[in-house]
C-alpha cells in the first residue's frame, strides 16, 4: 500500500514537471522575440527539470543515485541563470534593431 502511495505521489510530481516542459515549448512558439522566449525557456531549465527530478528522487528513495540527481539540480541552479544571462547579452550586443521589440533607456 505504501508503495502505491509513493508511486502516485511521485507520478503526480513527475507529470507536473513534464507539464512545465510542455509550457516551455508552448511559450517558445507563442512569443515572437528571443528575449521574451527566454522567459519560457528558463522556466523549463529550473522549474521543469527541478520538479521532474524531485519526482524521480521520490521514486528512487534515499540512495546514491538520488544524491547524484540532486547534484544535477544544484548544478543547474548555478549554471542555468548564467547561461540565460550570456544569451541575453549576446542578443543585446548583436541585435541592431532592438528598439522594435523593447524600450531602451540610455
Amino acid at each position: 500500500m505504501l508503495d502505491w502511495i509513493r508511486f502516485i505521489v511521485g507520478a503526480v510530481v513527475l507529470l507536473l514537471g513534464l507539464a512545465a516542459f510542455a509550457l516551455e515549448v508552448f511559450g517558445s512558439y507563442r512569443f515572437s522575440f528571443v528575449l521574451n522566449r527566454m522567459h519560457a525557456a528558463a522556466m523549463g531549465d529550473t522549474l521543469g527539470i527541478g520538479i521532474s527530478l524531485i519526482g524521480l528522487i521520490i521514486f528512487s528513495g534515499f540512495n546514491f543515485t538520488s544524491l547524484k540527481l540532486f547534484l544535477v539540480l544544484v548544478f543547474l541552479w548555478f549554471a542555468s541563470p548564467v547561461a540565460s544571462h550570456l544569451i541575453a547579452r549576446l542578443e543585446i550586443t548583436t541585435d541592431e534593431d532592438l528598439e522594435q521589440f523593447c524600450e531602451i533607456r540610455k
Binding site: H85, L86, R89
Partner: peptide
C-alpha cells in the same frame, strides 16, 4: 571581464 561568469 564578465563578473557573473567569473563568480560562477
Amino acid at each position: 571581464n564578465n563578473v557573473i561568469l567569473q563568480v560562477v
